[in-house]
């Protein structure tokens, strides 16, 4: 059973998400505890990892931003065929994605990886993609994606959610209906309540 929600329904995933091979992650400790989040803009992979990333020969693929940036020539034909999307992690700089393609809407899908539920950068990234950069195609959240983020993700412009493998996508789907009338304008409903409804 698929764990992907797209456009308010559970659907099969046509896309293969390409990941970087495991590198030697430097575990940093601060004041006795492991650092939880990467800092914004931090370099996350090595040239060796990028070079070693295995790209499936056929089918629709979502590649890491760093791989796209380093191996553009090789991957450009796949993009031209509409078979290539890009994913970035929440600590990566969104502008480097924007600068990496001529037109952001050439990408049929952009996916944003959230390592931890509590990392709310994903919401600003979605909002900026939709409002500032005019991105119109599929916008997917994946990683530590659980039902209690979905309402917020939807409001920030995401229309696709890959629910964490150990959780039910069906239950998660129900949570999109948690609230009927939001107060503030956001991506999905741009008008705040006082411009929508005569109160």
């Amino acid at each position: 059973m698929s764990n992907l929600i797209h456009n308010n329904a559970i659907v099969n995933d046509e896309w293969t998400t390409v990941t970087l091979p495991a590198g030697e992650e430097v575990v940093r400790k601060q004041a006795g505890k492991v650092v939880m989040f990467k800092l914004t803009g931090e370099q996350t992979c090595t040239p060796e990892q990028i070079a070693a990333t295995v790209i499936p020969e056929n089918g629709k693929i979502i590649v890491p931003l760093s791989v796209w940036l380093a191996r553009k020539a090789e991957l450009a034909p796949r993009l031209a065929k509409g078979e290539l999307g890009i994913w970035l992690a929440t600590h990566e700089v969104l502008e480097s994605l924007i600068d990496a393609v001529d037109d952001i809407n050439q990408l049929p899908i952009i996916a944003v990886f959230v390592e931890r539920f509590a990392d709310g950068r994903i919401f600003s990234i979605g909002t900026l993609l939709r409002t500032r950069y005019g991105y119109k195609n599929e916008l997917r959240a994946f990683g530590d994606v659980l039902r209690d983020q979905l309402f917020f993700l939807k409001r920030c412009g995401y229309d696709s959610y890959l629910i964490r493998a150990d959780r039910s996508a069906e239950e998660a789907l129900a949570s999109l209906q948690d609230f009927s009338q939001p107060y503030q304008g956001a991506v999905d409903e741009t008008q705040p309540v006082w411009r929508r409804v005569q109160r």
């Binding site: 917020f152 409001r155 939001p182």
Partner: peptide, 14 residues
């Protein structure tokens, strides 16, 4: 208060 209630972009700040 109303604007900040469940503000979707700012639900999980640092």
């Amino acid at each position: 208060r109303q604007w900040s209630t469940f503000h979707p972009e700012f639900a999980l700040l640092p």
